[in-house]
Design a protein around this nucleic acid. Structure first.
Lengths: 114, 114
DNA sequence: TTCTATTATCGTCTTATGGCGATAAGTTTA
DNA sequence: TAAACTTATCGCCATAAGACGATAATAGAA
């Protein structure tokens, strides 16, 4: 409805993922479908805050949502999101190892004895 | 220095990518190393704005930077970033086709003659 | 129906982000 | 050295985003 082209959706997905709490929510839901009442105690944020974050992930089509009685159940809609996160992690790890390598070389150039 | 663990770097990378101009900058630089003076005319933003965006991508270790005379040349440091963007695009396309499919079914249920 | 449980939404506040013009800093040219 | 170029940074403003408590909405229990 609101969004149409790939660029907008792409941006919406990436924006949804650029928040630490929402990344944690994904990890939490990797264990399977959970109701909000199960999610809440795992996060040190207010109910309204968590609800909003869940909705952002839902709007980005990353999460699915269904209502069962008085509970709302959230689950991963597109598991490809984990490939994405893993790919980002690989990039991050590469950066860390490069830093470590640079440190090793610097150390060496300063002499092994310190 | 400032950042240490994977979570922080991961977030920094994703945040860097959650902006339309920065995504365009990546596409632009996919053609190879470019100086800021070449980048500027391709974007309808002020020089200070572009400079800031380039720096955000640099800080996220996505871009490389080198100075040559009075010019600063930017280039893609980690080409894996394109795999990432392509993966997001695939997710976005999936969403679009699902929407189209839903529309088709709805149309059908309303009768072909309209 | 009334009470409780669960979750979404509203209003508000604070902070972060993006945008710009002006200025600074560094480099080459004159 | 002065002038011109190129790019980064600063200060400021407007808007977006995140957080929270309060309230609304809905479903099941009493």
């Amino acid at each position: 409805m609101a969004q149409k082209n790939v660029s907008e959706l792409r941006l919406k997905i990436l924006s949804a993922l650029s928040d630490p709490i929402r990344l944690e929510l994904l990890e939490f839901l990797s264990g399977g479908e959970r109701c909000v009442c199960e999610i809440l105690p795992a996060f040190s944020r207010s109910q309204s805050t968590i609800s909003k974050h869940l909705n952002i992930l839902f709007e980005a089509d990353i999460l699915d949502r269904r209502i069962d009685g008085k509970k709302t159940l959230y689950s991963i809609k597109d598991p490809q999101v984990f490939e994405l996160v893993r790919l980002v992690d690989r990039m991050a790890l590469k950066q860390i190892s490069q830093l470590a390598e640079a440190g090793r070389i610097l150390e060496e150039s300063l002499g092994i004895g310190r």
